[in-house]
């Protein structure tokens, strides 16, 4: 089978919340194909973060099932623990979880908890540091002496070193400057190309989603509102805007053009597509450029 994650009829309600309040997750169905990059978008509070915490058994669904790698993660204690290592979760601002004396030890924390041999841990730490683009010299330093961007990458390496089947990134570029953002995005692309891992990317930045994702899941008020390829999702740009979500800048420009009365399609999300579309329109209107 090719789906690495399958959730069905997933419901979740935070304990101690008012009975009248809507649940955090409601009847969510989700399949993630092996090797794909799935972007999860939605407002703050739409259930994105709650959803991904179901995938590595941090939160237990009130109803419904979660299958990772073909196994029900809530079957027994062992499967719960395995789920932690099958799905690596990289939280928002992960640099706030660094604690060890050296960067190397911090990256090794996950692999050590997995009970791996010293040699294997060492190999994984090196590999992870290489993947995130951390200089070898930094490994012996204290994580608290690194720059902001380096800290972020060291923390991400800590999750990667567990070599999970699926890695979830929750807003990996939040709060970074343009250079730092580009570093992280390059790292995501490299990680994908070299390890063929499945990646889930929670993001508010639609430009990044348009650039990186294969498919997109739109969360809205605890429900999976849309699920499809990037083209399919951004073709529904008007609906997304109604939900109060942003769409890529080029998509917004084309929406404005549509409102002004130009005959352009709604699902344009890259600069190249935009150019192509305008050239086609120019050719149709039959005028030389």
């Amino acid at each position: 089978m090719s789906s690495v994650i399958e959730c069905d009829k997933l419901c979740f309600r935070y304990p101690n919340t008012a009975k009248t309040a809507p649940p955090a997750l409601e009847q969510v169905k989700l399949t993630v194909e092996r090797g794909e990059l799935l972007a999860i978008i939605g407002h703050t509070g739409s259930g994105k973060s709650t959803l991904v915490q179901q995938l590595n058994a941090l939160l237990k669904p009130t109803q419904g099932t979660v299958f990772v790698d073909g196994k029900n993660i809530w079957e027994n204690k062992k499967t719960v623990r395995e789920a932690r290592f099958l799905v690596g979760l990289c939280f928002q601002y992960p640099e706030y979880q660094l604690f060890e004396e050296t960067v190397e030890k911090d990256i090794a924390f996950g692999p050590k908890n997995m009970g791996l041999e010293a040699d294997e841990i060492k190999r994984r730490v090196c590999r992870a540091a290489e993947l995130v683009g951390l200089d070898k010299l930094l490994l012996k330093k204290s994580p608290f002496d690194l720059s902001g961007g380096e800290k972020r990458r060291a923390a991400i390496a800590g999750v990667m070193a567990m070599e999970p089947q699926v890695i979830v990134f929750d807003e990996p570029t939040a709060g970074l400057d343009p250079r730092g953002k580009e570093h992280i995005l390059q790292m995501l692309l490299r990680c994908r190309a070299e390890t063929k891992r499945t990646i889930l990317l929670i993001s508010h930045n639609m430009e990044d989603v348009a650039r990186l994702a294969d498919r997109v899941l739109v969360m809205h008020q605890g429900k999976a509102a849309m699920h499809g390829t990037v083209e399919q999702i951004f073709a529904r740009a008007e609906e997304l805007t109604e939900m109060g979500l942003t769409v890529p800048c080029v998509t917004r420009i084309f929406l404005a053009l549509r409102r002004m009365g130009l005959a352009v399609p709604p699902g344009i999300f890259t600069l190249e597509q935009g150019l192509r579309e305008l050239l086609r329109l120019a050719a149709e209107s039959g005028c030389a450029l």
């Binding site: 400057d177 250079r179 430009e207 800048c249 080029v250 600069l271 150019l275 305008l278 120019a282 450029l289």
Partner: peptide, 19 residues
């Protein structure tokens, strides 16, 4: 200085080659 143009400006720049 590690900065990019705003996307609308980038887009316009790309278009200007043809328009």
């Amino acid at each position: 200085a590690g900065l990019e143009l705003p996307i609308p400006a980038l887009f316009a720049q790309k278009l200007r080659a043809h328009f």
